[in-house]
Amino acid sequence: MADSKITVGIADMKIAKGDGILITYALGSCIGLCFHDPVFHLAALLHVMLPLNMEAGRTHPLKYADTGIRETLRQLEMQGARRNRITVKIAGGAKMFDVGGNNSLGNIGQRNIESVHAVLNKEGVRLLEEHVGGTVARTLLFDVASGKACIRSYGKKDIIF
């Protein structure tokens, strides 16, 4: 893979056109979403932390799955991508700590996954493949030209999908 890597932080999104690598590090319960328009070679990588935006001020749309996905689609479409061509691959939503009992702590990952599914479905965007859940952190790389994604985890083999 090429050297030029564009880093996507937490509650962040970056768009790239043509070629290059988008990368987001250490997804725990957060979810990384790779958007791709193959005809336009346009790609976006989004890193969301929480399922639903319930903030009054809405200062930080990219933090949440619902507003984050809509904002990303809006920006991609502004640059010429077409909704019916855009495909998505996702990774993340793990449960880092199991504190036991009836605790909301471990559920954020699961709630993130469900919210991402629901919003993608509602927006009419195709989900191609996902590697979600489990208990390990994932670093997600996305190759803009090919639309291939790669997951790095501690003590595991890389997954290319």
């Binding site: 725990g28 319960s29 957060c30 932390m49 903030e55 954020i108 208990t135 952190a137």
Partner: peptide, 18 residues
């Protein structure tokens, strides 16, 4: 947990991120 520290630190962030 024995894992990437970024993911460990996001646990309190996600908990209070809202």
């Amino acid at each position: 947990a024995l894992d990437m520290q970024g993911a460990i630190l996001t646990v309190p962030m996600a908990e209070y991120g809202g």
